[in-house]
Structures are given as structure tokens and as C-alpha cells.
Nucleic acid binder design. Structure first.
Length: 122
RNA sequence: UCAGCAGGUCGGUCUAUCGCGCCUUAUGGUGAGGAAAGUCCGGGCAGCACAGAGCACCACAGCGGUUAACGGCCGUCAGGCAGAGCGAAGUGAUGCGGUUCGCAUCAAACCGUGAAUGUUUGGUCACUGCUACAGAGACGAGGAAUGUGAAACGAGCAUACUGUGGGCUGCAAUUCCAAGUAAACCAACGUCUGAACGCUGCUCGCGUGAGUUGGAGGGUAGGAUGCGAGAGAAGCACGUGGUAACACGCGACUCGAGAUUAAUGAUAGACGCUGCCGCAUGGCAGUACAGAACCCGGCUUACAGACCUGCCUCACCU
RNA sequence: GGAGAGUUGUCUGAGUGGUCGAAAGAGCCGCACUCGAAAUGCGGUAUACGCAUUACGUCGUAUCGGGGGUUCGAAUCCCUCACUCUCCG
């Protein structure tokens, strides 16, 4: 499984995002809030750092890149442990909710925890 | 040299592994800034409008220059303020002589003076209007000693006047493609006694001529263009002119992002640079402000650290 | 990305350059009324520094988001910074 993250794996479009936040299940894995729902299409991921908490674009860009990188390196935890029969794909949104910039190690742990929780719930 | 100022340049480098956008496609190439920021000014560009006249509105304001343009920049004149230092008497503290004084050094505040430099203000008062409180009286008046007051017949100020400039809106502009839709209803005004619209703030004037506007309800939330090698009023070197801003000529030297839920990253290591510790190989800590969104010229604000250049007073040295 | 609007006491919110530390309402505090409360009525209610007093009134200065400027005088006009909100196809 290559650890790639092309543009097709990003969740785009206002309608899809609105539907995810309306219908998806959510839980918190500090410093992230995770919203997800199963989907028939490919797995798509959305990464988000709010402007109200981080005023400067540099901070938001950095957090977004860290979250995206953590997901890219650990996305196989969703797939590798799943049943070989029907592939279960999800739409997932990661929202950064802490007020301070955390290190990559912290975000990485949170992403792994979140992916395992999604896997075990389904 | 010390002290005080001013201006300019740069603002990390390399390797490995895993990744992202764009262009080409076995491959490969390329990928944030001096402020990309704030959006405070000015332009390019685009759409709409443009027979004409008048009135508003906005911006600017010594003088001269510069520029595509500017409220920017350069030069210069006048006034105010700041400014290292210097000076004088007094005060305080310390020391020495000495006995109710004298000398020396140091210190802080005030006063005077004040280099380089920085900062700020700068059209006019004939007309119109304003000038609170205080004051006998505040722009009306024959004069104005005292007092009041910022100002007392002298004026100051702008909403007044003069000069110059400005059509409006902004890339979510604009144009094209795809998909989809919704009529009916309610309210106001009106159909030649002229509603409404256009001349983009208003009036005149001119033109079009039966619907227009609002409410409620319904549909869409995609793609392309603009958009970056016709980038560019670009930078750099040299020459000429100019005090300078800058202009002209010449060289063909440099630069080469184009996302759209939004690329330009992550991890590990090495080297720079700065500080501390150590005799030392070295160790520890730090390495800023900050992220393009149509493109330029300025201004303003943020910024670890490094480098270069220039100006000037007193004192000292040669 | 672009275009605009705003910031005044604990809250909401007025305020033509001059009697403005600042209207009004809400809230809060005190008093009256009541057996007690509610409602009602009356009064009070920003902060800091300085001065004064046995103590309390009172007085002076500064503050209308922060900092500069214009003016005799600024909440008001101008510049700049910060923050909040609205609109766009």
C-alpha cells in the first residue's frame, strides 16, 4: 500500500462537506475533532484548522500539513486490518480544536487513535 | 577613538527517505516574500456608460523638480518641537585645607545654548458661516487705557473662496460551456393627464414607451476564460546628464510559482551563525517576522541576526 | 480575493468641535412600603493618581479601543495600529 495522498483523496465541494458534518458521527481525539461517515466511493479526507483560533495563515498552513502528513503515513491502519471481502471506505474530517500549536508527534498519535477508533466502530 | 545620528544590502546551506501542485510525459523540469501582510494611496487591465449645460461630492495645497500615476520620492524656503554635548549660578554627596569659610571631584532636576540628523506645519479671508465659558462688548460699531479671553477690531478657523485633478464598478470584474428552474399569488405605482428605465449623486434637457419594483416561493453551488515566456512603466553592470529623486543610451548578464476545501511539506542527519560553559577535541541552548491568489509603483506595520557606507559637536592623540 | 460599517460605564445605546465624565433604558446596591417578598416609589452606582478630612462628602488631573497630529479647545476632524461585524457569483 503506497503512502500517497493525491488530490482524489481529498474531500471537496460544499455539498459533500455539508452532508458529512450534518450526518456524520463525531468524536474527539485531542487535539483533533473527528467527523466521519461510511461512503460508497473512495475514502476521502478533509483537514481543517480554524481561522478563529489561529490568526496567521502560516500557522494554519503548518497544522493542515502536519495533519495531512500524519494521515498519509498511517492511512493503512484503516485498510490493512479490514476484512478482505467488502472494502469499507469513509469520508473523514479532521478539525483542529486546540488553541496552541502542538508538535507533529502529538498530532500523529491523535490521528492513529482516531483511525483505529473508526475501524473498530464499523 | 569615544559619543550621537543617517542610509543601504542580505535575511540560512547541504544530504537521505517518504510525499504534494503545475508543465511535459518511460524520463525530467519547476515551485513563496522583503514585507507575499494591512488594503492606506496611485496606475495597468476588464465591464458598463459617454450630444450637451449647470449644481453638488471627493482628494490635494509654501516654491521647484521627478514619474505611467500618486497623498509617494528628491531638492529647497520659513516657523515649531526633539537632539549628543557645552555653559552659568544655586542644591546635595564625598575628599582636602580649615573652622562656621575656601578649594576639588561627582550626581540629578531646572534654565540658557545647541552639531549631524529626525519630526511636524505651511493656498486665500472680498463673500457666507462659526469663535463655548469668562468678559461691558466676540466680528455688528467712532475709539480702546485697565481687566476678561486663544482671539478685543488686529484677527483665527472652514462647512466659505481660489487653483489643480477625479465617469462608475471591480478579476466574486468579464466572457463562454454544462446542469437546473416556476408559473400562479400578495403589496405599491402606472398604461399617453406617461409608471419605470438610460445619460451611474442631483437638476435641466434628450431618448425608450407598458409594465416596473418589493415580498413570499423555486433552481444552481460545476467547468473553462481572465491567469502569467507578449513575464516587464522588471532587475543588474557600464556610460552620459542632473546636487538629488530620476532620465537617456548601451550590454543581452539575471529573473521564469500559478493553487481554487486551496500545492510549495514531513522525518532524520550534517554544516553555518549567535550566546553560555570548558585549557581543549567538544557540550548545551537559540536561529526572526511571516505564506502568493489578476499584475505593477509607493506608503504603513512586523522582524532573530549579519554586513557595508556616510555625516557631525566637544575632548584626546598623531 | 475585493468592497464597506463599527468600537462610548457591568450590558444595551444616544451624543451638530465648546455648560460633556458624558443622555436614556436594563442590571446592581440602599431606603420606603410589607409579617416577609414581588410590584411600585425615592436615592445612589466608571477607574486611576494627587490633595484634603478623625471619618464621610468634596476638589484637581487623566481616561470615550491603543498611539500620534490639527485646534484656544477633540468622544467628535485627520493619520496610524488593533479588534469585531456585514456584503459579493
Amino acid at each position: 500500500m503506497p503512502n500517497t495522498f493525491p488530490k482524489e483523496a481529498k474531500l471537496c465541494g460544499a455539498l459533500g462537506i455539508a452532508a458529512l458534518y450534518k450526518n456524520g458521527k463525531r468524536f474527539t481525539a485531542w487535539p483533533l475533532r473527528v467527523t466521519y461517515q461510511p461512503t460508497k466511493g473512495e475514502t476521502q479526507v478533509l483537514v481543517w484548522a480554524p481561522k478563529s483560533l489561529f490568526k496567521h495563515a502560516v500557522q494554519r498552513n503548518r497544522l493542515r500539513r502536519l495533519m495531512r502528513e500524519a494521515y498519509r503515513l498511517h492511512q493503512d491502519t484503516l485498510i490493512s486490518q479490514s476484512d478482505s471481502g467488502v472494502p469499507s471506505n469513509f469520508q473523514i474530517a479532521f478539525n483542529y480544536i486546540d488553541k496552541e500549536e502542538q508538535s507533529y508527534k502529538t498530532i500523529e498519535k491523535a490521528v492513529i487513535k482516531a483511525l483505529r477508533k473508526i475501524k473498530s466502530n464499523e
